[in-house]
Design a protein around this nucleic acid. Structure first.
Lengths: 141, 141
DNA sequence: ATCATTGCAAACACTTTGCATACGC
DNA sequence: GCGTATGCAAAGTGTTTGCAATGAT
């Protein structure tokens, strides 16, 4: 399965971070670039392993710190579709996620039937939601 | 907020476990009883802390083991609505969950608009799903 | 010069594993 | 008696914390 990986230039990424008042350090720019170019719902470790090749001094602490900063600003979203690991998604368009129990692949699902437009339910104010689907993906069927 | 806590007797619980070919040990019965009488989405630790009072020799390993056995049989479901802890739910009726960002309380949501009846989406076969809502609950508003 | 970011190492929390003991049919 | 369940202790994993060094303005 291929995912489109649009290219982003550094100037563009700097502007994104500055828009959130985040200092655009080299590490942060690279992590943001990774997330935007690889919308494959990576774990912290996947991001670290990839970027450590390009930034030999990179520490995992920085990846953790940076993801926390991005999360706090809403630049990325944390996914717990697999109960035993956290993944990160820079895809801002609202969508659901599907995880294949067999191959482990996580797919984005943009079907409208899985999107809600709700402010309140049972009297509770809803500000965010996630829909996680599981099963067997089309490639494994 | 009060949750209904129907009482279950041991004979009844034994039958449930035997129906799944699970040996109904004292620990397993007590853990199942806890889950059925307190549908409050407890963590492993909450279950352990409560039952350790009644079973002083209880170990957390047994709680972990037992939850894994129940999960494998589909007696309970694992919830990752909070990305940083796992909770368990013995409520078999399909429903969504809402977590209040302020008080941390997790509510069951039975609204039909949050239930799907889907076999396939984008060509993937869906066998299970979870809907996690977040926001401010009616008591905190 | 000052303040923020980075990165190492240590600490932490949670979960799993290995194994000896105890239990149940 | 044999196979399973339990529970302790140790190991493992992922994440956070403390702090000194570095970097940016």
């Amino acid at each position: 399965m291929k995912t489109k990986q649009p290219k982003f230039n550094i100037t563009e990424l700097k502007q994104i971070l500055q828009g959130y008042s985040i200092h655009p350090s080299h590490q942060r720019l690279q992590i943001l670039m990774y997330l935007l170019e690889h919308k494959t719902h990576p774990t912290t470790d996947i991001i670290y392993q990839f970027l450590a090749k390009k930034i030999p001094t990179l520490s995992k602490t920085t990846v953790y710190n940076t993801l926390k900063v991005f999360l706090a600003q809403g630049i990325i979203v944390e996914l717990a579709i697999d109960e035993h690991e956290l993944r990160y998604d820079a895809n801002i368009k609202p969508h659901a996620h599907f995880k294949c129990k067999q191959c482990g692949q996580i797919y984005d699902v943009f079907a409208k039937s899985l999107l809600f437009n709700m402010d309140f339910i049972d009297g509770h104010q809803v500000t965010a939601y996630q829909v996680y689907l599981k099963g067997i993906c089309k490639n494994c069927l």
